[in-house]
């Protein structure tokens, strides 16, 4: 009984349980008013694909999803409005790739702090990402 209860698949399939989870969230130390990127691993343990559609946070004036891209010799960023999260798969938000961008930080981010970012999905589900603040 105990072993069964600890099994992730069983727990994920339980009604009302969120198959979406995040881990390894982090961001860099930053001054108030500055810009920051939040990185994390997003996992969909469910058997149905979902779509990440919205990001929000109380930490900044503007919050958006972006991807950094090299275009020829230039580095540019493009906004992302919908990001597919396939079933039984993970999506990495990582340096030089996808990130949640916080613009106009409302307070300085100090090493050891944790900030929260809310993700909203096409399924109607939401997920709170917690990201630890690290030195750059």
């Amino acid at each position: 009984m105990t072993l069964l209860a600890a099994c992730g698949r069983v727990a994920a399939d339980a009604p009302g349980d969120n198959p979406l989870a995040s881990h390894a969230g982090w961001t860099r130390t930053a001054d108030s008013g500055a810009t920051a990127a939040v990185y994390f691993m997003l996992t969909n343990r469910g058997s149905v694909a979902d779509t990440l559609k919205g990001v929000s946070s109380a930490e900044a004036n503007t919050v958006g999803m972006h991807v950094s891209m090299q275009q020829g010799r230039m580095m540019q960023m493009a906004p992302v409005t919908a990001l597919p999260v396939p079933a039984e798969d993970s999506v990495a938000f990582q340096p030089l790739g996808a990130h949640v961008m916080l613009t106009g930080l409302r307070r300085p981010l100090v090493e050891g702090d944790t900030i929260a970012v809310k993700l909203e999905f096409g399924s109607g589900r939401t997920l709170e990402v917690r990201a630890g603040v690290r030195r750059p």
Partner: peptide
């Protein structure tokens, strides 16, 4: 640029 959220801090952190 200093408002660069992703690439510039990644490069400078790697330099460090």
């Amino acid at each position: 640029y200093t408002h660069c959220p992703d690439v510039c801090p990644t490069v400078l952190a790697d330099w460090a």
